[in-house]
Write a protein that binds this DNA or RNA. Structure first.
Lengths: 208, 208
DNA sequence: AGAAATTTCGACCGGAGCGTCAACAGATTC
DNA sequence: GAATCTGTTGACGCTCCGGTCGAAATTTCT
């Protein structure tokens, strides 16, 4: 068999197992906290022994790190594509809020880790994540700022507005349970309208 | 010396040292996570050995538990006294939001623990805290419901409204740093007006 | 001063969990 | 069938940390 082809197959299989491990780890980490979950827990939850996890990952920290990078990359891609459209700031901001809220609910376990357990990373990793979160916030700030310049948003410090937005959406992971009377769409819509009503000037009923 | 008087003095001194330990523990826990901070860390941060901590507290869990109960009791008392006034729902809700936000910023370390580390408690303790948090939310829900009945608030599911409120305020602990350009009062005011504008019917400009 | 209560110390135990390692098993290639 | 690559096993070492304990030190009372 061709060498590169074999390597490719191997990589594909390993990626599959890695994803499986990451998904299980995320679920357990979210419930029990990073330190409260052992590698044994993750492995046996999949019918493996812990050596298997160490075969696919260097150590516990790498498992955690991949969770952070994977979720961030996915969210970042989503948000960047929204920003590229040429919607007006109010509908763009609404779309961004909805998307962010839906993303949080879609992967509540991963979100819980992403917002709660940054302190479990190494100092260097924390710096990277902090920077990426700032860049992510920046996307929101730019849109809001544009709306202020166009006179359709109230001139409130963008830091305050964006932190409110992120704060509302992120808190969802703490209480949202799928299957309840409130659907993710309904919740996301509410968040968008709450912020838009709360920040838009009263002369722009288009937001309501 | 009178026996009961001596006991009283002893209790008073012990309470003082306990508070000192709790304050330090809360600060360290908030930064490093519950499991990331050892009893040795707490003790040596005060110039003690860990045996001293074990003299004043049964174990690590009791230290954590007291942090939870102390902060809850303080917040509950604040909110209950606000609810007792006969202000109309809109200004009462605004006061409650402001108060909650200010409380979170006033003790950011304790708040971080209260919202982030409930999972580190025993199952029984978690049940108690969950119940108390629900009762706390209930205070907000009642006020909002009253406003809906009076026709001054939009008829949105109270769960959604209250979780938004709590979510906004609680997220503050993650980014607020005292000494910045944004004062706690300014932040609290913004939160109150954001929610009131976002939830009140447009026919009640008194909220703006 | 001497006795009693209070507080502090430092050594120690035991368990838990991370990460390693040598060996083994199964598949694949030659 | 032998050799190699891939995946898996279970046991082990090591460190860290929660919690205990007896003794020492300090303070308070008589």
């Amino acid at each position: 068999m061709n060498l590169t082809l074999r390597e490719e197959l191997k990589a594909k299989k390993q990626a599959y197992v890695q994803d499986e491990i990451l998904a299980t780890a995320a679920k357990l980490f979210a419930e029990g906290g990073i330190r409260g979950v052992t590698i044994d827990d993750i492995a046996s939850s999949l019918g493996y022994t812990k050596s298997v996890v160490y075969y696919y990952f260097k150590n516990k920290n790498q498992v955690l790190w991949e969770i952070f990078t994977k979720i961030h990359d996915a969210w970042w891609a989503d948000m960047e594509s929204l920003v590229k459209t040429d919607d007006p700031p109010n509908s763009m901001l609404a779309s961004m809020i909805r998307k962010h809220a839906l993303n949080v609910m879609d992967r509540a376990a991963w979100s819980a880790i992403y917002f709660r357990d940054q302190g479990e990373l190494t100092d260097a990793q924390q710096k990277v994540i902090t920077k990426r979160k700032r860049e992510y916030d920046q996307l929101f700030k730019q849109v809001y700022q544009k709306g202020v310049e166009q006179g359709i948003f109230q001139d409130i410090p963008t830091t305050l507005v964006v932190n409110s937005i992120i704060g509302i959406c992120n808190s969802t992971h703490a209480w949202y349970k799928s299957g309840g009377p409130l659907t993710p769409d309904r919740i996301a819509d509410h968040y968008a309208s709450l912020v838009l009503q709360g920040c838009c000037l009263k002369s722009t009923p288009s937001a309501g």
